[in-house]
Amino acid sequence: MLHVEGLSKVYDGHGRRTEAIADITFSVAEFEFACVVGPSGCGKTTLLRCIAGLLAPTSGRITVSGEPVAVVFQEYGRSLFPWMRVRDNVELPLRASHMKAQRRRELVAEALESVGLSDVHNAYPWQLSGGMQQRVAIARAIAYGPRVLLMDEPFAAVDAQTRAELEDLIRSVWQRLGVTLLFITHDIDESVYLGQRVIVLSASPTRVAEIVTVDLPAERDQLTTRSDARFAELRTQVYAQIQKAKRSTP
């Protein structure tokens, strides 16, 4: 569904050459929930921007066989249009794809309901809390009917409790919608709790350090899953990999 082959990205600017990504290769299967985790500054966002087509890779190939692709960014406060009400924010991508008004209204109402925001259609984004704003961004992605959903540290800027709620929300959205989901995070626990596989990146210049399969049951919840012995093993495994990757930095 999503193949990244020998991706590298070099930033050339002001006489300084920075190799952000050395060589990344991985695949994500259809309907899979894959997490990408790595030490800070390892080029996670660069990777996502390349996959989303917002940035041209220096070399390598990215194939996304499945349209459309929706993206949820970390900066929820800057990814929603502050001059539009919540409803119009969710609707705009659908208008851009020339969908009929009737169908648009249905999709917007459904998407907002599925993220628990049926009562704020008329609010402006800045009238909502951070967690609710990120829900609007998720609703916009859902309404778009994506086959591939890319998320760039979407919960990095919300408080811990809201974060737990949003994690469960995104698990249920993924199960109901049947999308291929690539979720980027710097939080090891989050990557193990959410994903079916965790792609561990090394420090910059970035490579894939290890791919860990998360063999936890499909039904997960914040209390039992996180206190599961297997969960602890997996997070230790991912943590050790990241530590190793950091140490081996030249």
Partner: peptide, 24 residues
């Protein structure tokens, strides 16, 4: 820039981008 990226990733282009994003 994040809003510009949002427009690009949701294929909001041309007159629609001008009216709903740039001018606003």
């Amino acid at each position: 820039e994040v809003l510009a990226d949002t427009c690009r990733s949701y294929r909001i282009t041309g007159a629609m981008r001008l009216r709903h994003f740039v001018l606003r």
